[in-house]
Amino acid sequence: MTIIRFDELNRAKAEALIEEIKTSEAAAWAKSLPMDYDQLDLTIAPLEERVAQLDAEVKATKKVSPNPAKQARRKAKSYLHKTEHIRNKRDEYSAAQAVFAGRNSFSKTDHDATFMRVKEDPMMNGQLKPAYNLKIATSRQFVLGYQLFPNPTDTRTLIPFLETLSTRRVLGDYIIADAGYGSESNYRFIADYLPEQTPLIPYGTMLKENSRKWRSDDRKVMNWDYHDKDDYYIDPQGVWFNFQKYVARKDKTGFTRQFHRYLAEAIDENQQPIPAALTKGGRTRYIDVNPEWEFFKAQQRAKLTSKTEGKIYARRKIDVESVFGHLKAYLHFTRFTVRGNIPVKRQMGFMLMAMNLGKVAKRLFALSALNQIKRTKARNLRDFRVLVLF
């Protein structure tokens, strides 16, 4: 981040300035200055005392020209102003890093907003704008719940959003989302904590895996031959990859993935090296396979390619995307008019509530009109019967 880089430059500037003060000032107070970036007040206090001392000397030697005390005071004031500026910048960078809270940017006019790529891009140059990541849960185009997130990544918003929906008991039988939410951590959370719900969430490469280019790519492990009995892979070049060890990796969010590492057989039966088993640098090739991730991928492929659940997933665009289109096209709500997480959340809540009430009103009106038509038809039929009797 830019703030971290600027803070490091500011730290180097502080160390250079203190070293310069110690070199130019031969007095004992200068030699005892601490080289501590986090405690610049201990450097500013002696400088302030030095300036006050020189002020007294200048007043006592007003008629001396040129006045050495004035020259020394000018130099001491320069050191003091530079040190105070560095301290202020340090405090500014420290406060900015506290605002980040796991994000990589924030708006100066709204600290809760994060710079994101939005669809509204008049300049067509991928301009970043301060925004919030809105998540909504719908059923038949009615909004059941919503939540605003400061981070632009959809993958990391699903679990906290599902926790909120589960607490409010508005989760249905199916959890449907697009490929931006397909990750091992999300699949595992639903399987462990929401076993009654069925996820219909494709992963990022699901459509690509069905393409001819993907299936003909020899670099993809899924195109290799796997022998589950002895647990080894054979690549298209005939190189055997045998199981070697378990490998655990932890990402930035603290989620741990478990991998199986397979090492290539680099020597043949005649104790001769196999060139295809080595990298360009001469090291033995290996692959890491995540069985749990492969299990979840296969599970989603089976569900989304079935007729019943495939039709359910196909309604996602009609059910969810229509809500966003309604907000923008009919309510003309394209940006927030308030700042801060709480005011923004309230404004979003009012807009979604108004939209839900509008849909209810339309359905009640349609139901009333239908009942009126039925009553009219019944009355006409009754009058016709009476007319026939007479």
Rank of each mutant, 00 (worst) to 15 (best):
P130I: 02
L162P: 05
S166L: 13
Q71Y: 13
K63L: 06
L370G: 06
M355P: 08
G340T: 03
N88G: 12
R103F: 03
T337R: 01
A27C: 07
K82H: 10
I312A: 11
S368A: 15
R188C: 04
W214E: 05
P152L: 01
T284N: 07
H81S: 05
D231W: 06
T157A: 12
Y187V: 06
Y174A: 03
V388P: 00
W29T: 00
I44T: 06
T83G: 05
S32N: 14
T376E: 15
L148E: 03
K328L: 01
R249A: 07
S183Y: 02
H227G: 02
V99I: 15
F365Y: 14
G325V: 04
F295V: 10
F241K: 09
I342C: 07
Y262D: 03
S139F: 09
H81C: 07
N133S: 10
Q127I: 13
N223C: 04
K75C: 07
K311I: 08
F336P: 11
A56V: 12
R212V: 11
H260W: 14
G325L: 00
T23C: 07
A298I: 02
I18M: 04
M206I: 15
F336D: 08
T2S: 13
A329C: 03
F6I: 12
D173P: 10
P195R: 13
F384E: 15
K229Y: 11
R168C: 00
I190R: 03
V221G: 14
D230C: 03
D173W: 05
S32D: 11
I18V: 13
Y132G: 04
A69S: 04
I3L: 14
M353P: 00
R335W: 01
